[in-house]
Design a binder for these strands. Structure first.
Lengths: 375, 375
DNA sequence: GCTGGCACTCTCGTCCTACGAGTGCTAATA
DNA sequence: TATTAGCACTCGTAGGACGAGAGTGCCAGC
């Protein structure tokens, strides 16, 4: 094909084409049905007829931004089309006062117990967006800052450890034999001397047995405390992932085929690896909202779905992601705004390690243009 | 219709009818398709032809145990049919050694952190049965048994409370102002004297302010500790419910209609009230496995699904339920066996407050006929 | 470069038919 | 009296034909 190939340079998308593409995508987001030239003429105010729009649509299709399900149907956006829309066309949506208040109210309500925070945040995100949500927290390697052993009675004591990231874990230990308070105190001193500030791989059998000898412990208490320590450190290093609201997928017409829905949902169900490929990248990427459209996702199961992710920073090198999964036909603008605000609220509440004492929640201050972070 | 009505007394279901009904239900459980007379002749060893079986089927239908989707299809069981099957016909299935070992292995693996136990148990149940599972724990009203306040530095201390049901909760408190260790110790003594052994409604503003005066606390520490106490007690009294594996519904042909699946799944998603109507009853009902078939469920959304529930006892008046939800065409026998074993395993591990120290799991001993509790 | 008009294409719903599975009934049989 | 073989009947399903409708591509005219 020699001469008549028009060397359609990708960059040259005229203003009118953009307007048409934007209108088409927004209509398609609403209706989930292919959009025809006449419909676009109806909803835009460009003073031209459907025939003109047809010509433009044909070119947009040739450029790869649109496609037709079959010869005689309207157009639907391709992933490249969505990408252009998200990058250049989409108006960054601002949340209304009511919406921000609603989010703040729910965050405050839920933030009382930190334990269940992750799943609660996921629940909030899912309800706000009406898509399945996933919440991921990744903890930076932690060490033990301090040990306390609370003597209860001859057969019972509590281990309390405080971690370098200021979380506190405890465990109640029942013993088949008796110990005296002196032994408990001695163990606490030894553990504070030998087990604080070190990472898991430096807790060796040698360290444990030397501690055991130093304490004169013949009952395996040292092992119990050491193994709790190791478990705690290990659990801190795990990436926790919670998935909520999978059922909301079924409300979307693109998942009306139960097979398709089932595949995606069971992929999400053990959500750990959902974003594994992208986690590092995201963590490096600061706090803006990321949009992964269709084939941009690494996971095969997500190739025709989209993911919107916001990251938050809890301080102490502990970061997290909050995201939603949905069809590529997703209301990116609204979803991005909501997630961004949610993540910012989380960072403010949790960042810097200064958790407000319960019952004394700071009211989150919202500046108008703070709702979407630009970079 | 005067004379030829045969006064089919419900009780008289002949042995052959039972055999036919049982075979039909088991076939239907396998295939999810209406079962015809010829198929039954093929799988049973009653020496009679399909015509005879047709007559029996017609009578079983008249009795209300079977129905026909349309005139010329095979039969499917009605809820009454399933009920008869579950009560009288079903062989109580025994788990194989491999299955029991698998369950034990997973329980042991998961039982290390008690916090996440509920959702983990749900996960196990769901994976074992391939149905969505729900895990519910209801705690008997608890009181605080003991307070410890761990002084960290002038601005930080940890609250550790031990509850009457032997769970331990903690909270790290940051203060905007300084306190000295003496105040912390004084508060611990006062709280142990005044706040132990009492229920939430006896923690009054009067009690708090008198404690505050006694301690000479002008910084609101007393309120912080008191409100943590109240929150802890309140959270213990809540019924917690976890739902896992909703997506597995989509694997069942009866939920291939996405609307139907969506309805049930979103009903399950906030699983708190799923069994609300039946909870009390179940708690009273001892430890046998309960089967609720179709319309036997109180909730409208469950009217054409079935629920199998086992209860377990964690001691200290804390009980829980573990159950699965699926189509009425459910492999009741296998599901009941698995849940029963799982619940028994939980009770053994948690009952009597004697949690084995981690790393020292008792191997659960299984007696052959212990796998299904008869009463 | 835009527009109206028009032929063309493709999907979707509907109608029809043929097929097959399974029943219910009847008459024959042990 | 219980069982069986045979047969007509019913009903859902699959497949094919057909028309309506939506939307396109293209062309000629403005």
């Amino acid at each position: 094909m020699p001469a008549n190939e028009k060397v359609e340079c990708q960059m040259s998308v005229s203003e009118r084409k953009k307007k048409i593409l934007g209108a088409l995508i927004e209509e398609y987001i609403k209706t989930a049905e292919p959009v025809g030239s006449k419909a676009i003429a109806g909803i835009t105010d460009l003073g031209c007829s459907s025939a003109t729009i047809r010509n433009e649509l044909a070119e947009l299709t040739a450029m790869g931004y649109l496609e037709q399900p079959h010869t005689s149907a309207g157009r639907i956006p391709t992933p490249a089309g969505y990408r252009l829309y998200v990058n250049e066309l989409m108006e960054k949506q601002k949340l209304s006062i009511e919406e921000t208040e609603e989010i703040n109210r729910r965050l405050n309500e839920k933030m009382t117990q930190l334990d269940s925070m992750m799943s609660d945040v996921g629940k909030i995100a899912s309800q706000l967006t009406d898509y399945p949500a996933l919440a991921i927290a990744a903890y930076a390697p932690a060490t033990i800052k301090r040990f306390d052993l609370i003597y209860i009675d001859a057969n019972t004591f509590i281990i309390v450890v405080m971690l370098s990231n200021n979380t506190v874990k405890n465990k109640l230990v029942h013993l088949p034999i008796s110990v005296d308070q002196g032994m408990i105190n001695k163990l606490a001193t030894l553990f504070n001397a030998n087990f604080t500030g070190i990472s898991n791989d430096r807790i060796t059998p040698i360290l444990i047995s030397s501690t055991e000898r130093a304490a004169g412990d013949t009952m395996g208490l040292t092992s119990v405390i050491a193994s709790f320590t190791m478990e705690t450190l290990a659990s801190q290093q795990e990436v926790e992932a919670y998935v909520t609201g999978e059922n909301r997928l079924l409300g979307q017409p693109e998942y009306k085929d139960p097979e398709k829905a089932h595949k995606l949902m069971s992929y999400l169900a053990d959500g750990g690896h959902v974003l594994s490929g992208t986690t590092d990248e995201i963590f490096a990427g600061g706090s803006e909202v990321r949009v992964l459209i269709g084939p941009e996702n690494v996971a095969e199961e997500l190739k025709d779905s989209s993911v919107v992710i916001a990251s938050y920073d809890m301080g102490d090198n502990t970061k997290g992601l909050i995201g939603v999964v949905g069809p590529t036909r997703m209301d990116y603008s609204a979803v991005a705004a909501k997630l961004s605000f949610l993540a910012a609220g989380l960072s403010r509440r949790l960042g810097g390690g200064e958790a407000p004492p319960s019952g004394m929640h700071n009211k989150l201050i919202i500046k108008g243009d703070d709702i979407i972070d630009e970079h």
